[in-house]
Design a protein around this nucleic acid. Sequence first.
DNA 1: GTCTATATCTAGATAGAC
DNA 2: GTCTATCTAGATATAGAC
Lengths: 193, 193
Amino acid sequence: MSRFNDDQLEKIHEKRRKQIKEAALKVFARRGLIGTKMNMIAKEAGISQGLSYRYYHSKDELFIELVKDAMEETVEAFTSLENMTGSPSEKIKQLTKKMLDASNRYSFMLIQQVQISDEVPDKAKEIIQQYPISSLIEQIILFFKNGQKTGEFRKGNPAKLLMLYFSVISGLMLLPNATEDIDIDILMKLLCE
Amino acid sequence: MSRFNDDQLEKIHEKRRKQIKEAALKVFARRGLIGTKMNMIAKEAGISQGLSYRYYHSKDELFIELVKDAMEETVEAFTSLENMTGSPSEKIKQLTKKMLDASNRYSFMLIQQVQISDEVPDKAKEIIQQYPISSLIEQIILFFKNGQKTGEFRKGNPAKLLMLYFSVISGLMLLPNATEDIDIDILMKLLCE
DNA sequence: GTCTATATCTAGATAGAC
DNA sequence: GTCTATCTAGATATAGAC
C-alpha cells in the first residue's frame, strides 16, 4: 500500500514525464533517434535507465510524443504571424528569430530530423506530413505578396522564394555553431530587394 | 593454389575496394556513420556483408578512408579557385555550383557529417581539423576583398560574411530536397549588394 | 516509485565451407 | 575470393528487490 493518494501519484507521474521529455528532446535534437541511447536520456534526466520505461514503453514512443509537441509548436509559430502587427518583413524576421532562438530550436531541429532521416518511426513521419512545410508557408505567402507590391520583397515566385528562405534557416539550424551570432538582416536579403 | 597471378589479384582487389567505397559513400553521406549498417553498404555494392571485411577491417576504417578522400576533394575545390579566370563573384558561384552538384555532393555531405556528429571516430575529426573550413575560406577572402573594392560584394567583415555564406550552403546540402533546382543567384545576394 | 540485474535482440566482426 | 553461419558486444526492454 502506497503512502501517496491518487492525486499525489498523478502529480509525481506528470512531473517525471515532463522531466524525461525535456531531457530527451535535448539529446534527440542533437544526436537523432538512433544516435541517442536510452541511458543518455536517463543520465540527462538524472534517473536510472530502467525507470524511463515505466513512463514510456519504448524509445520510439517517447520520440513520437516529442515530435507531436514540436509540430504543435511549429504550427503555432507560423500561424501566430497572422495576428502579429508590423510590416511583412518584420513578421518574417520575428519568425526567423524564433526558429533560431536557443529555447525553441530543439523543437525545430527535431522536425528537421524527421524530415531528413529514414530511420524514424512511420508514425513520426505521418505527424509531420499532416502539416507539411509547404502548407505552413501558404499562410505566409499571403502577406508576402503584399510586401512584394510595396517593393519590400523581391519579385519572383513567392512560394519558391519562401521555400528557399526556410530551407536556408532549416539548414542553418542543423549546424551547431552556425547559429551563434547570425546576422538575420543579411539572411533577409534573400527575400528583400 | 589460386588460378590468378599476383597482378590479376591486385586488380580484382582494387576494383572491389573502389566498388565498396562508392557504395559506402552513397550510404554514409545520407545516413551518417551509425545510421549506416554494414549490410546496407554490402547490399548497395552487390556483395555479401562478410566480404566487406576482407577489404576493410572495420566500419570505422572504411569511413575514415572516405573522409580522407572527401577532404582532399574539398581542399582541391577551394584551392582550384586561385587559378580560375573570371570575376570574384563568378568564382564563388562556380564553387557553389560544385558543392551543390549531385556528383560532388556526397563528399561535402560526409565532411558535414564529421563536423556535426559526435559519434564519428576521432581520426576522422582529426583529418577534418587539418584543414578547417576557416582556413579554406582564408584563400577566398583575398579575392573577396577585391570584389568589395569594386562594389561587387557588400561591405562588412569578409570572414564573417563568407562563413555565413558557406554555412548556408552546407546547411542546404544536408536537406535532401532543398538542392533540387536551387537559384544560386539568389543565394549570392547574401554576399552581393 | 526507483534501482540493479538480467533477458533479448540487433549489428559489427570472425570462421569455416565452397 | 566469396558466401553462409556463427560469435560477441552493446543497447532495448523487462523482472525482481527494496
